[in-house]
Computed example of a mutant assay.
Amino acid sequence: MKTTTQRRVLKAALLAGAGLCIAGAAQAADPMVKACAKDGQFIIGFSQANNAEPYRQHVNDELTAAAKEVPGFTLQIADGAGNVNTQTSQVDNFITQKVDILLISPFEAAPLTPAVKRAMDAGIPVIELDRKTVGDPGKDYTAFIGGDNYKIAMEAGKYTAKTLLPDGGEAAVLEGLPSSTPAVERLNGFKDGVKENAKIQVVAEQAADWVPDKAQTAFAAMLQAHPDIKVLYASNDMMAAGALLAAKGAGKDVKIIGTDGLPGPAGGIEAVARGDWAATFTYPTGAKEAIEMSKKILLDCATSVEPTVTVDTTAITPENAKALAGK
């Protein structure tokens, strides 16, 4: 049996523990940004990997349009120009400006990781679009919004296995910048997808850094070494365009698959509609989702957000390309 003194000590300990729990709960319920307010004025800084890429400009356009719909939001876009040092400097400038939220599409994962950490340490929420830095969403940065690169490429691989090369044959891959996460995920996804057809051989894979002229050169060399290539998977639409030029130059009929599904006369949707490519798979920008998440944090004073938001892809094939091109 406990003495009166022992009971008092136990009661005090329980009360202290309850107090800590209440304090912890209160702390956990704090807004992610202290200055959040329904009628506030907020600056969102976006560090873009490289404005020269058509997909990146498409992201910028959709972000700009979405931000204009929100009173109180000012969007500032910095062009990393495909240079990690430039992009790092621009992120640091945003930190110095004390922007309210940082959006970033890192040109390369590892080199931009310290800059993202500095932003987080400064109390600025960081939402990563399309490409990731090293670490985990919800821990090392606030959230990741983008398509599932591996899944998108796997769908392209399965489409090859079932529809383009049902009787087997040789395929090749043009990879993006190897130090970026989408390049690795898309390469692996396609190679895993075509495994559904054991008669298909991936005979060549080469990085072309997302650039059409490098893709043209690389695919021309592939066709010289492997003249029986029947399908080429390009990890973005720009490289698919370069690959088409290489195939025409070599007098080869190669079924080309792109990734991005960009709109417009030079985009992947039109290329499929014209019959130049066999397919492309859309890579959604995540722009609307990023602005919605920014609203939750800055206007709705959210205490937390989903660490990963995956936006779905659409397969653009000869069956639906003309209808989608008209939209």
Results as ranks from 00 to 15, higher is better:
Ile22Tyr: 09
Asn197Glu: 03
Asp61Gln: 08
Lys295Gly: 02
Asp213His: 11
Pro114Ala: 08
Val194Glu: 13
Val211Cys: 11
His58Lys: 09
Ala110Lys: 15
Leu75Ile: 02
Ala250Phe: 01
Trp210Gly: 08
Ala279Ser: 01
Leu10Arg: 11
Asp312Lys: 15
Asn149Phe: 07
Ala26Glu: 11
Ile127Phe: 05
Ala243Ser: 04
Arg118Glu: 06
Gly168Arg: 14
Ala49Gly: 02
Ser47Cys: 02
Leu174Val: 03
Lys195Trp: 14
Ala273Ile: 00
Val134Asn: 12
Gly242Thr: 03
Leu63Val: 01
Val116His: 04
Pro111Asn: 06
Ile127Cys: 05
Lys11Ser: 15
Ala23Phe: 10
Thr303Tyr: 14
Lys139Tyr: 11
Thr313Ala: 12
Asn83Arg: 13
Val231Glu: 02
Asp61Ser: 09
Val202Asp: 00
Tyr283Ser: 15
Ser89Lys: 15
Lys132Ile: 05
Cys21Gln: 13
Ile291Glu: 01
Ile43Trp: 13
Arg131Pro: 03
Ala215His: 07
Ile229Ala: 05
Thr282Phe: 00
Gln224Ala: 05
Thr5Cys: 10
Tyr283Trp: 10
Ala247Leu: 05
Glu205Gln: 15
Pro212Asp: 05
Asn197Met: 06
Asp140Leu: 13
Val59Gly: 04
Gly275Thr: 00
Val59Glu: 03
Gly168Glu: 09
Val202Thr: 13
Phe144Val: 05
Ala207Trp: 09
Pro106His: 12
Gln97Ile: 12
Leu298Phe: 03
Asp312Leu: 11
Val84Leu: 05
Ala12Glu: 04
Gly189Val: 14
Ala278Arg: 00
Leu103Glu: 01
Val116Leu: 06
Thr96Leu: 12
Asp30Phe: 11
Leu187Trp: 13
Thr160Val: 13
Lys158Pro: 12
Pro106Trp: 05
Arg7Glu: 07
Ala35Gly: 14
Val272Phe: 03
Phe190Asp: 08
Ala250Gln: 03
Gly275Cys: 04
Asp39Gly: 02
Val116Gln: 04
Ser294Cys: 09
Met154Ala: 09
Phe42Cys: 03
Asp61Val: 12
Ala81Leu: 13
Lys322Gly: 00
Asp253Leu: 07
Ala16Ser: 15
Ile95Ala: 06
Pro106Met: 04
Ser89Ala: 15
Pro182Gly: 09
Asp148Met: 10
Lys199Ser: 07
Gly17Thr: 12
Lys296Asp: 07
Leu232Ala: 05
Lys252Ala: 03
Gly19Asn: 10
Glu128Ile: 15
Pro166Ile: 14
Glu62Gln: 06
Gly40His: 07
Asp136Ile: 13
Gly82Asn: 01
Glu128Asn: 10
Gly17Ser: 14
Ile316Asp: 04
Thr314Gln: 10
Ile256Gln: 01
Val203Phe: 04
Glu108Asn: 08
Glu185Trp: 04
Thr3Glu: 01
Asp130Ala: 14
Lys11Ile: 10
Lys38Thr: 08
Gln6Ala: 11
Phe190Val: 03
Ala247Asn: 02
Ala323Asp: 14
